[in-house]
């Protein structure tokens, strides 16, 4: 169902808030995964604040929709969403990577309410998502499994093993979103290690393909709704995004995959998203 203009504005506002929190979590003078976290902020906003059936008071509710962040380094966007929804206190966001924090460098299910699985060693999350989708079918549950992967990450062979699992078992309760931000840690994907062409590859592996602008809330919503209608195969939403989206000095730059903001850059970035 298409969303109202009001809802679109609200989700845009939340995405903006997530980006603000990402910048605040990283701070100045310390490295942090700004690029890949910012590129998924709009998708995370739609999933957590519109699409997914969740209960923040009951993170292990058996009927919940699942969110797997296979590109685990982008966890900052997820932490911001989880805190905003009340899975854990917002103050915890200020303790990113500190000893004992719930906001680990990469997602840890036993430390953080709302995290479904441990990810961050790239390539594994999509397989875990397949397992959860298989269990859902076995248990006759109607939950959906959403999994975000990266365009650098798909160089991992395990991604393609998982892609075959999803099509072999006709996992139509699984929706993967390719965060095609075009930049991996050491540089542009096409220059460092070209994983293209994406639609052709995923189509050949048996997936239904939808291509969108991953920063357009309406397109994200429409794609996720369309995925609900696809039967007998998994859906891949190829989301064209921009690394470090919204932070002009960092946009599209590999340096900010895991970069350090100077105090001036940090101030600039913070003010961009401040209300």
């Amino acid at each position: 169902m298409p969303i109202t203009e009001k809802k679109t504005k609200e989700l845009e506002k939340i995405a903006r808030k997530l980006r603000y929190e990402i910048v605040m979590m990283i701070g100045a003078g310390k490295p942090g995964h700004l690029g890949g976290s910012s590129s998924i902020a709009d998708i995370v906003s739609v999933l957590y604040f519109h699409k997914m059936r969740i209960d923040p008071q009951n993170p292990r509710w058996p009927d919940r929709d699942r969110f797997l962040l296979s590109k685990g380094h982008a966890a900052l966007a997820q932490y911001a969403a989880l805190a905003e929804l009340g899975y854990f206190p917002k103050e915890e966001l200020r303790t990113l990577k500190e000893l004992g924090t719930a906001c680990q460098g990469h997602p840890e299910m036993l430390r953080t309410p709302g995290i479904e699985a441990n990810t961050g060693s790239l390539g594994q999350g999509l397989s875990v998502a397949c397992g959860i989708a298989l269990a859902g079918r076995l248990d006759k549950k109607d939950y959906k499994v959403y999994c975000i992967i990266g365009d650098g990450e798909i160089a991992e062979g395990q991604i393609w093993e998982a892609s075959m699992t999803a099509s072999n078992f006709q996992l139509d309760n699984l929706v993967a979103i390719l965060d095609k931000n075009r930049v991996q840690a050491m540089g542009p994907v096409v220059e460092r290690y070209d994983t293209n062409p994406h639609p052709e590859k995923w189509k050949a592996f048996g997936w239904h393909i939808i291509e969108i602008d991953g920063h357009d809330i309406t397109q994200i919503v429409d794609a996720l709704d369309q995925a609900d209608e696809i039967k007998g195969k998994p859906t891949m939403i190829i989301a064209n995004t921009v690394k470090s989206k919204g932070v002009p000095f960092a946009e599209g730059k590999a340096q900010f995959h895991h970069g350090v903001m100077t105090p001036e850059q940090y101030e600039t970035a913070r003010k961009l998203f401040e209300d």
Partner: peptide, 28 residues
């Protein structure tokens, strides 16, 4: 037959898929 999964010749994926099943309450 419903509770047995032929995962093809791909052990890495098999382990992570098993984790997903276990995270959903199965003993994999």
């Amino acid at each position: 037959p419903d509770r047995h999964f032929e995962m093809g010749i791909g052990e890495q994926n098999m382990v992570s898929v098993a984790a997903g099943l276990a995270l959903s309450g199965k003993i994999a």
